[in-house]
């Protein structure tokens, strides 16, 4: 099976090859963005993410087989310009227990699924944008520490400390007990 790196390498001489990278990851990237901001903005950012990736493909590290962390990194950077939209949706959810993103995806999702959503929204609101990126790439993007470091161009120690702090904060927002004395808020 062709790796993303092989497709990107091929795209340096034949741009069409990059469409295979888009085909392979557009659903995942768009889902991540739609979970963070409204569908309208997310779909715009999805197109921007892959257009940016295409324009920057010469700088892609071909030693990395999967382009997914790189794409998540570009998407995260583009999201930074829309952070207010994300905060507004979270604030609405925290205050009135209605998730505008779920509403826009499917009216049936108006009924909150777990009951934790407003508390989670409060927890996410209390994080810095940088901490929120790390946490959601870990939880929603299923990226490893190393992949998050690669995606956000951060030292891995920073990823660890931000993730540790973000998880602790969100855990506290859920009212869950903390079980390990050495647990880090960092």
């Amino acid at each position: 099976m062709e790796t993303d790196a092989a497709a990107i390498r091929a795209s340096l001489t034949d741009g069409q090859a990059f469409l295979r990278v888009v085909e392979g990851h557009v659903e995942e990237i768009s889902r991540y963005l739609r979970r963070r901001v409204s569908r309208e903005i997310a779909d715009e950012l999805t197109a921007d993410t892959f257009a940016t990736a295409f324009a920057r493909r010469e700088s892609y590290d071909l030693a990395r087989a999967s382009a997914l962390p790189w794409l998540y990194g570009i998407a995260s950077n583009l999201l930074r310009n829309r952070v207010r939209h994300e905060l507004r949706e979270l604030e609405l959810l925290a205050r009135v227990a209605v998730d505008p993103l779920a509403q826009s995806a499917d009216p049936l999702d108006l009924v909150l699924r777990t009951g934790f959503e407003p508390a989670l929204a409060r927890g996410l609101l209390g994080l810095s944008p940088e901490e929120r990126d790390v946490l959601l790439l870990f939880a929603w993007g299923d990226l490893s520490y190393e992949e998050i470091a690669e995606a956000l161009d951060l030292p891995i120690g920073t990823v660890r400390s931000r993730l540790s702090r973000a998880r602790t904060h969100v855990r506290a927002s859920l009212g869950a007990p903390v079980e390990l004395k050495e647990a880090s808020r960092g």
Partner: peptide, 13 residues
């Protein structure tokens, strides 16, 4: 809890 949060939102198939 986070994984289930907005889990019903789909990507672009």
């Amino acid at each position: 809890a986070l994984k289930e949060f907005r889990d019903g939102i789909a990507g672009a198939p």
